[in-house]
Design a protein around this nucleic acid. Structure first.
Lengths: 221, 221
DNA sequence: CGCGAGCTTGACGTTGTTCAACTAGAGTGG
DNA sequence: CCACTCTAGTTGAACAACGTCAAGCTCGCG
C-alpha cells in the first residue's frame, strides 16, 4: 500500500493536507485493481467510499432499464463519490473499468471530516465540483441540442483532447460504448463513423481511430 | 438596502458567517428588482457577481442558435454564479426573471475570499454544488432517455412539488417556456398537455394547471 | 478450422419536428 | 365601444431524423 504522502499521482486536493491528515487517509484506504469490464461503483449501492483513479480508464454512467448513458470517460487523477456525500446515502451512477484500472478507495467519513475541517482541501473540492457542473452543462446541451453527427464529432474531439491526448489512439471502447456516450443506436455510430471516414475526416483501422481533419470535425461539432 | 445580518431569506451558507464577514457582504452587494422577462445573467458575459434570489421565480438556461434549453426553474433561496468562480471568467448560462424578481448581487471577489477562508461557508457550498450536480444528472438522463410524455410528466411533478408547491398553480411560464424545459417543440407540449387533460390526469384553464391524478403522472414519468 | 461476440449494412417504422393555417385574447387607437 | 393588430396558443399534415429489426460479415481465439 502506497503512503499517500509519497503518492505522485494523487488528486490536487491532497496537496493541501498536513502529514497528519495524509496518514489518516493512508490508514483508511484500500488500493484495488480492476480488470477491463469490471464494475467499480454500482448505482444505488450504499455510498461508503470515495474513489480515486490512479491509473487506467473508467466510464461513469447511469443505468436505465433499456439503455445506459455514459456521462464521462476519464483516467488518472479523476475522483468519484464526493457528490454523494450529503445528497443521499447512495451513489446515483455506476463506474466501470475500460481497461486495467488501479483505484484508491477512501472511507467516506474520513474524507467528509477533512472537508469539514481543512479549508484548502474544501476549496479545491469546490473548484473540482464546479468543473464537473460545467462539463455536465455542456453534456446536457450537446445531447439535447445537437444531432448525431455533431455528437460523434464532439466525442471524438473529447477523446482525442482530454482522454487519450493523441491525434491517433487505440480505443478501449466498443461501438456500443460509443453509442452510450453519444446516446445513439450502435448502428448509427457505425454509420456516422463510416461517413466521417469517407469524408476523409478520420481514419478507422479496427479499434484505432486517427483524426485527419480536425477542422472539419470542429465544424460538425 | 437590507443588512445581510438581518436578512430572513438568505441562503443557508450565510448562517456560517461572522458578523464581520456579513458586513463585508452587505457593503459589497446591490439589491435589484427585475421585471418579468428581463435578463438577469447573460450567457458569456464576464462573471463579476454571485446572485441570490430573494423573491420571485427565475429560469436558468443555455442559449443556442436555434433553441434555448432551460436547466432549472427556481425561486427564493437559489443562488447562481458560484460555478463560474474558477472555471473560467464568464457565465456559461443565462438567467431570466419569470415574474417580478428581487435579487442580491454580491461581488465575486468578496465571495471567493469568504469561500477560501471560512470553512463552514465552504462546506455548505460543497453540499449545494453536490445537489446541483445530482439534479443535472437527473436532467441529462431525463432528456436523453425518456420520451416526450414522460418529460412533460416529470416537469409537471417538478413544478408542483418544488417550484409552486401546490397541486394547482397558475404558471408564470408560456408554452414555449415549457418546451424549453422539456426540450420539445412547442406544438408537442400543447398536444401532450391536451392528451393528459383528456386522460383526466390534469386540468387546464389558461395558465392554470391542476394535477388531478398524481399517480398516473408518476407512471408516465 | 470453426465458433461467437462484436461489427456492419440495408430496409423499415416510429417519434417528434417543421410548416402552414387558423383561433383566441389582450392591448391600442380612432 | 369597436375595429385592428399582435402575440401566444392550437391543430393537422408532411417530413426528417433516428431507432429497430433482421441478416450477413469479420476477426480473434480456442
Amino acid at each position: 500500500m502506497t503512503d499517500c504522502a509519497k503518492c505522485k499521482n494523487r488528486a490536487s486536493c491532497f496537496n493541501e493536507l498536513s502529514i497528519n491528515d495524509l496518514s489518516k487517509v493512508t490508514n483508511n484506504k484500500v488500493e484495488i485493481n480492476y480488470k477491463k469490464g469490471e464494475t467499480i461503483i454500482k448505482q444505488n449501492s450504499f455510498a461508503s467510499h470515495i474513489y480515486f483513479v490512479k491509473s487506467g480508464l473508467v466510464k461513469m454512467y447511469i443505468e436505465n432499464k433499456n439503455k445506459n448513458l455514459t456521462l464521462e470517460v476519464a483516467g488518472s487523477g479523476s475522483m468519484y463519490g464526493i457528490t454523494s456525500l450529503n445528497y443521499n446515502k447512495n451513489y446515483n451512477f455506476s463506474l466501470a473499468a475500460l481497461n486495467d484500472v488501479h483505484v484508491c478507495e477512501i472511507n467516506v467519513e474520513v474524507i467528509n471530516n477533512i472537508i469539514k475541517n481543512n479549508i484548502g482541501f474544501s476549496y479545491d473540492v469546490v473548484n473540482q465540483l464546479n468543473t464537473t457542473i460545467n462539463k455536465l452543462i455542456s453534456k446536457v446541451n450537446c445531447l439535447s441540442q445537437k444531432q448525431t453527427s455533431a455528437r460523434i464529432a464532439d466525442m471524438l474531439i473529447e477523446l482525442s483532447d482530454n482522454v487519450y491526448k493523441k491525434q491517433s489512439f487505440i480505443m478501449d471502447l466498443s461501438r456500443k460504448d460509443l453509442a452510450e456516450i453519444t446516446n445513439m443506436a450502435t448502428e448509427n455510430v457505425v454509420r456516422t463513423l463510416k461517413d466521417f471516414e469517407q469524408e476523409k475526416i478520420i481514419k478507422l483501422v479496427g479499434k484505432k481511430i486517427s483524426i485527419i481533419d480536425y477542422e472539419k470535425l470542429r465544424k460538425y461539432s
